[in-house]
């Protein structure tokens, strides 16, 4: 049992436990705190996987931005009795069974005969900020050429050069629209039924 496995075991357990906490906690503020731990756990997982930049982005954007937004939302809306809106026990049961079934299905897929074949990852870390930025800016992939794996035997899907400038632009515009829309929706106005 190497250090990596041990680290993963600790981090994965913590992540899973805090995710369960999000589900189980009645108090919305507590759920937010559990979510915080989950997100940090996922970020640690990214770091374990060698994707330092994505991990950092996860920490900054998610933990630092999105979660703060969520907490603000909680504070702006949750007052006294509304803080915990409990579902009925029957709903708990149905939801739990369903979630367990889904987890079972996914786990079976991940471990079963249809699982992706084990591939030895190439040495060295994942492409860092530099190659990612180049990919976003439209430069063809700088990583070593390789064929797509995990496809049925005997078939080879040749890689074609990819560039993400257009998706990047689309996402930028999307973000802009979203921000304007959010500002519009949330702007202070008189209550309609006041």
């Amino acid at each position: 049992m190497s250090l990596a496995v041990a680290l993963f075991a600790v981090v994965a357990l913590a992540t899973g436990a805090s995710a369960l906490g999000v589900v189980l906690s009645r108090n919305i503020v507590r759920a937010a705190v559990w979510l915080l731990f989950t997100l940090i756990g996922v970020a640690l997982n990214y770091l374990l996987l060698g994707a330092e930049f994505v991990g950092a982005a996860q920490l900054i954007v998610y933990v630092g931005g999105t979660l703060v937004l969520v907490v603000f939302g909680v504070m702006l809306t949750a007052q006294g009795p509304l803080r915990s809106l409990a579902a009925r026990p029957a709903e708990w049961a149905v939801g739990g069974v369903r979630a367990a079934a889904l987890f079972g299905l996914l786990a079976a897929l991940a471990l079963g005969p249809h699982a992706p074949p084990a591939v030895t990852p190439p040495d060295g870390p994942l492409p860092g900020v530099g190659p990612l930025g180049l990919a976003f800016l439209g430069f063809p992939d700088a990583s070593p050429a390789a064929n797509v794996t995990g496809v049925p035997d005997g078939k080879v899907f040749p890689r074609t050069p990819v560039a993400y400038l257009l998706p990047f632009e689309v996402v930028s515009v999307h973000l802009l629209v979203v921000l304007i829309g959010a500002a519009y929706l949330a702007r202070a106005k008189r209550r309609a039924k006041a």
């Binding site: 149905v94 369903r98 079934a101 889904l102 299905l105 996914l106 897929l109």
Partner: peptide
């Protein structure tokens, strides 16, 4: 519920 069933079906 429908969403979960759909996911299961697609898988």
């Amino acid at each position: 519920l429908v969403l979960a069933l759909t996911v299961a079906g697609l898988l």
